[in-house]
């Protein structure tokens, strides 16, 4: 009798783990389909870069994106500053495109919303992405937070807020937290007048982390952007 009960429990446990893995896989695939449905967009943005060694005012401009990884900020005569290609500012590049192992990691609250956490491990050994942890709002089928561990760029965290473009899986606001290195030039070359003062906003991070906040004011989605927009010549005056 006891043996039969134990067997039943074991079978139920196995089935539940399998069902949970299947759910997580289904959830990940649905989310990925939604995110990958956006092939390109043009967005009016405001961007604030907060990095220990950088003093950059809020930048306004037009952000162009074309899948899989082309991105350019046009500032109408001003300088454009974006993280290097492998730290892409789009949710698409933080989600593995190929086959991956998906693990259900439970639930958590983000901004008062219940989210399901899934861990995604890409099966491609050459991928820079080692692990992606995604907090998914199942009601709207959007990612509210993505945390990724990469081979070369450390840990990246992306927090997303949605509004008018939630049906396309595109955020109204994005906050990317990334690891930053130090910047040093010989003082004899620069002949500084004053010592630099640390940015108040970055006091708690001890200068190891930086943030990039983007507010998307409007989107034009899937308009068939030309590759020419992303060439280096297009950025130069």
């Amino acid at each position: 009798m006891i043996r039969r009960s134990l067997n039943t429990i074991l079978i139920l446990l196995c089935l539940s783990v399998q069902a949970s893995a299947a759910d997580a896989n289904e959830l990940f695939n649905t989310l990925r389909r939604k995110i990958f449905s956006v092939q390109d967009y043009t967005a009016d943005v405001k961007m604030k870069i907060s990095v220990k060694y950088m003093r950059i005012p809020q930048l306004a401009g037009t952000l162009y994106f074309k899948s899989p990884d082309k991105m350019r900020l046009e500032r109408h005569g001003g300088l454009s500053i974006l993280p290097r290609k492998n730290i892409n500012l789009t949710i698409r590049n933080l989600i593995p495109a190929g086959s991956a192992t998906v693990i259900d990691a439970g639930q958590a609250q983000i901004g008062g919303k219940t989210t399901r956490i899934i861990k995604v491990i890409p099966e491609d050994d050459k991928s820079d992405l080692v692990l992606a942890k995604i907090w998914v709002d199942e009601t709207s089928m959007v990612a509210l937070r993505i945390e990724t561990a990469t081979r070369n760029e450390g840990t990246l965290t992306m927090d997303l807020e949605y509004g008018r473009y939630i049906s396309n899986g595109l955020p109204d606001k994005l906050l990317l937290t990334l690891d930053v290195k130090d910047f040093r030039m010989p003082k004899g070359m620069t002949m500084d007048y004053t010592e630099s003062r640390p940015d108040e906003a970055l006091k708690d991070t001890k200068g190891k982390k930086g943030t990039i906040q983007i507010t998307y004011l409007s989107y034009k989605i899937n308009t068939g952007l030309s590759d020419k927009i992303f060439t280096p010549e297009a950025s130069e005056p």
């Binding site: 060694y53 950088m54 003093r55 950059i56 005012p57 500032r75 005569g77 001003g78 300088l79 500053i81 130090d182 910047f183 040093r184 030039m185 010989p186 003082k187 070359m189 620069t190 500084d192 630099s196 005056p237």
Partner: peptide, 21 residues
């Protein structure tokens, strides 16, 4: 050389000043 945003490089800081400033 034309106008544009100005880059100022200190020994440990990169400063960007917008062209209208």
């Amino acid at each position: 050389f034309g106008r544009g945003d100005m880059v100022n490089i200190k020994s440990d800081t990169f400063i960007l000043i917008l062209q209208n400033d």
